[in-house]
Write a protein that binds this DNA or RNA. Structure first.
Length: 616
RNA sequence: GCCGUUGUGGCUUAGCGGUAUAGCGGCUGAUUCGUAAUCAGCAGGUCGAGGGUUCAAGUCCCUCCAACGGCUCCA
C-alpha cells in the first residue's frame, strides 16, 4: 500500500462521474479544514494480509497526525500512486476498515472520499517540513506497531545437565569465564555487554576475503578470490561429511511461489523476515533455508520403510533472511548466506533419536576440525522431555559435554527437540553454528508419507541438520578464534596461499617460479611467488602479515644446496620468525601433514605477486 | 524496527566556525638486496548524502544513508 500524506488547510471534493468499480452509499461531496489527507493506493501484494496492512496504515496515519497535531483525517482513494493495484473490492474493504478503525480507536475525526468515481478536488498544502510525506507499506514489514497481538503464552525452564547425567541449577554455571558460562549468561539474559567491534570484520576485509557490497542490500557480501576459495573448501568439507553420513546431495530453487499452500503455510509460520516480491502476477518468496525445495522433492518420491532413514543434503547458496537492520553484522548475521542443510526422513521417533545422535556427533566433530570450542544448548518441549528424559541424559553423556537444557511448556515452532552448538566470539557472545532438530509438522504439511507394514499412512519425523551452521558463520567463528592466538593464522588447509616463495634477488626469480610451479602442479599445494622489485625484508614481512603458513626463501645458497630456508608460522612466536632448513620433499611432507585429510583446491589468486592487482 | 555511538583520499587518522594534516597503500624513478617496512618524487579529498543557521560550516542544527554497540529477534 502506498500513502501520500498531506497536511492541508483545506480539502474538498465532488463526485463527477462513476467508474465501473464504484462503491455504493457514498458521500458525493464533502470538505474538511486543517486535516491530514491520506491519499491511498491499495496494492496487489497487500492482498496477502489485509489485516496487517490495515493495522500498519492506521498506525502510520495516527503517528503522523499526532506528530503534526492534526485532529482530522481524510482518507482519499488515489489509484495513481501504484502501477500494481489490488482488486477493487479488496481495496474498498481495506479503506473502509482503515476509516472504521481510525474513527473508533482514536480520537481523530475521520472522513473518506468515495472509491471508484472521478472526482474533482482541491487540496491546499500547509507547506511546513512534515506537511508532505509518503509511505510504502508492505504486509509483514510493519514492525512493532502492527505486530500481531496473538501469541501463545510459553513458559521456559532451564537447567544444566552434566555428562554424568546429573541436573544442576544453571546459576552454578553463570559466569563469563568459560565458553559454556558465556552461553548460559547470554541465554538466560544475565550477560554483561562487552562492547567493541567483532574482530572478524576487520580480518575479513584486511585479508581480502569478503567485503560489504553497497550496491546490494545490507547483509549481502561480495567475496574476493581468497574468501571464495575458503567458502569452496568449507563446502567441500561439509559435502565429505554428509556423503560419509549417507546423504544424497540435491540442488533446489532459491525462490518459491506462495500460491502453493504448503509453501505458503511453511513460510507464514516463520513470520516476517523474508524477502518477498512480485513476479508478474505471482507472489514469490526467497527461501530462508533449503527446506522448501527438499520437502517438495521428497513429496514426489515413493517412500517405503526400507528407504528409511533417508537423508538428503543441499548447500543452500544462497538462503535469504530479511534480518532487521540493527541485527546484521559482519559474517555473523547476514541477509544472504550459505547454509549446509541436511534433512532426514525417519521411520519413527526411535529412529529419529538415533539419527539425531549421529548428526549431533558430526556437529561436535566440526568444532574439533575447525578448532572452535563449541558449547551446547538442548531445547525440547515438556512432553518430549517427559517421554525421553533418559535419552536426553544419553546425548549429554555421548557428547562428553555439559549442556544447557531448555524445556518449553508447549511447541512453538515445528520442532519438538533441537540442539544448538555455538562457538563463543571475542565479545563472549555465542555464534550459533551446528544444529539438529526433530520436525514433526512438515511431513504432513508437505504430504510426505510412507505406508508401514499394516498399510497405515505415516508422516515421518524429519530431522533438520546443519552439520556446521552457515559457511559464513563457520568462517566467523574461525576468524574470531584467531583473536585468541599469539601468532594468528588460518588452518593450513584453509589458507588461500599455503606457501610463498621469496626470491632473494631478481636473478633468483626463475628458480623461485620453477619451485612454485612444482608445488602447485605436482603436489597440489597452493603456492605463489613474490617476484616484485622489493627488498627481501619487506617481502618476508608481507608474507607474515598475510598469515602465509610457509614462507620459502630462495637465493644462491638454496640453489646450490637444494635445502630451503622455510619460515613456519605455526611455530613462530610473537614478532619472532621460526625457521627450518627443508628440502622440497620435507617441505611438501610438512604441508601434507598439516592439511591431513581435509579438502584440497588449487590456488585462486595470481601466482606472481608482481601481476596481482591490489584491492582498495 | 527501536535507543545510542561513529562517519575526513583505498586504509589509519589530525583539525572541532576562518586556505583540508600526516603515515601506510598507489604510481614513477633509483636500488638487486639474506629473513617483519630501501630511498626519492608524484598523484589522490565536492570532509557519508541532502537541507538549514552564519559574512564564513568537516566543525553548529535537522533529515536521510551506512557501520558498530545495546534491545527485540535469529523460525
Amino acid at each position: 500500500m502506498r500513502i501520500l500524506l498531506i497536511h492541508s488547510d483545506n480539502i474538498e471534493y465532488e463526485v463527477v462521474s462513476k467508474t465501473k468499480m464504484a462503491e455504493t452509499e457514498i458521500v458525493p461531496r464533502d470538505a474538511m479544514q486543517d486535516a491530514l489527507v491520506a491519499f491511498c493506493s491499495v496494492e496487489s501484494i497487500d492482498e496477502e494480509d489485509i489485516d496487517d496492512i490495515i493495522a500498519q496504515a492506521v498506525a502510520e496515519i495516527t503517528t503522523v497526525a499526532d506528530k503534526i497535531g492534526a485532529a482530522r483525517v481524510m482518507i482519499y482513494p488515489y489509484a495513481h500512486l501504484s502501477s500494481d493495484l489490488a482488486k477493487p473490492d479488496i481495496a474498498v474493504t481495506v479503506l473502509k476498515e482503515i476509516e472504521n478503525t481510525l474513527s473508533t480507536a482514536t480520537s481523530l475525526e475521520v472522513k473518506r472520499a468515495p472509491f471508484g468515481y472521478y472526482k474533482k478536488f482541491t487540496v491546499t498544502c500547509k507547506g511546513h517540513p512534515l506537511s508532505e510525506l509518503s509511505r510504502e507499506l508492505v504486509p509483514g514489514e510493519g514492525g512493532d506497531a502492527a505486530k500481531k497481538p496473538f501469541k501463545k503464552e510459553i513458559t521456559r525452564d532451564w537447567f544444566v545437565l552434566t555428562p554424568d547425567g546429573r541436573k544442576h541449577d544453571w546459576q552454578e554455571y553463570n559466569n563469563n569465564i568459560t565458553p559454556f558460562g558465556c552461553l548460559v549468561q547470554k541465554e538466560l539474559g544475565t550477560a554483561e555487554p562487552v562492547g567493541g567491534e567483532p574482530i572478524h570484520v576487520e580480518i575479513m576485509r584486511s585479508k581480502e576475503l569478503a567485503d560489504y557490497e553497497p550496491s546490494s542490500d545490507v547483509g549481502n557480501l561480495r567475496w574476493r578470490p581468497k574468501g571464495k576459495l575458503i567458502r569452496d573448501l568449507l563446502a567441500d568439507y561439509v559435502l565429505q561429511l554428509t556423503l560419509a553420513h549417507g546423504a544424497e546431495p540435491v540442488e533446489t530453487p532459491v525462490m518459491y511461489d506462495l500460491a502453493d499452500p504448503a509453501i505458503n503455510e511453511h513460510a507464514a509460520k516463520f513470520g516476517e523476515r523474508q524477502y518477498r516480491f512480485k513476479s508478474n502476477n505471482r507472489s514469490m518468496m526467497l527461501r530462508f533455508a533449503a527446506c522448501f525445495g527438499m520437502f517438495c522433492t521428497m513429496r514426489d518420491m515413493h517412500i517405503s520403510p526400507h528407504n528409511l532413514p533417508m537423508k538428503m543434503y543441499e548447500l543452500s547458496t544462497y538462503s535469504f533472511r530479511h534480518e532487521q537492520r540493527g541485527e546484521v553484522i559482519g559474517l555473523k548475521r547476514l541477509r544472504g548466506f550459505t547454509m549446509p542443510d541436511m534433512h532426514s526422513l525417519t521411520a519413527d521417533m526411535d529412529q529419529a533419536c538415533e539419527c539425531f545422535e549421529q548428526q549431533m556427533m558430526i556437529g561436535w566433530q566440526t568444532g574439533e576440525d575447525f578448532n572452535t570450542d563449541l558449547v551446547a544448548v538442548f531445547r525440547c518441549t515438556k512432553q518430549f522431555y517427559d517421554e525421553h528424559g533418559s535419552w536426553v541424559k544419553k546425548i549429554a553423556a555421548m557428547s562428553k559435554k555439559t549442556m544447557l537444557i531448555e524445556i518449553l511448556s508447549d511447541r512453538v515452532h515445528y520442532w519438538i527437540a533441537k540442539i544448538d552448538l555455538a562457538a563463543i566470539d571475542s565479545q563472549n557472545r555465542p555464534i550459533e553454528n551446528p544444529t539438529v532438530q526433530i520436525d514433526v509438522e512438515s511431513a504432513a504439511r508437505f504430504h510426505i508419507s510412507y505406508r508401514d507394514m499394516a498399510n497405515t499412512e505415516i508422516h515421518p519425523p524429519i530431522l533438520h541438520c546443519s552439520p556446521t551452521g552457515s559457511l559464513e558463520r563457520v568462517l566467523c567463528a574461525i576468524l574470531e578464534s584467531t583473536g585468541r592466538m599469539q601468532v594468528p593464522m588460518l588452518p593450513v588447509w584453509l589458507s588461500p596461499i599455503q606457501v610463498r616463495v621469496v626470491p632473494v634477488a631478481e636473478r633468483h626469480v626463475e628458480a623461485a617460479s620453477a619451485l612454485m610451479n612444482r608445488l602447485n602442479d605436482e603436489f597440489m599445494i597452493r603456492a605463489d611467488v613474490d617476484d616484485r622489485d622489493e627488498s627481501m625484508g619487506r617481502k618476508v614481512r608481507e608474507a607474515a602479515v598475510e598469515w602465509i603458513p610457509y614462507t620459502v626463501v630462495i637465493g644462491d645458497d638454496e640453489a646450490k644446496s637444494g635445502k630451503y630456508s622455510v619460515s613456519i608460522r605455526e611455530k613462530a612466536e610473537l614478532n619472532k620468525l621460526y625457521k627450518e632448513n627443508l628440502s622440497l620433499e620435507e617441505l611438501v611432507a610438512a604441508v601434507r601433514v598439516a592439511i591431513g585429510s581435509k579438502p584440497v583446491r588449487p590456488i585462486y589468486t595470481t601466482k606472481w605477486m608482481s601481476r596481482r592487482a591490489r584491492y582498495y
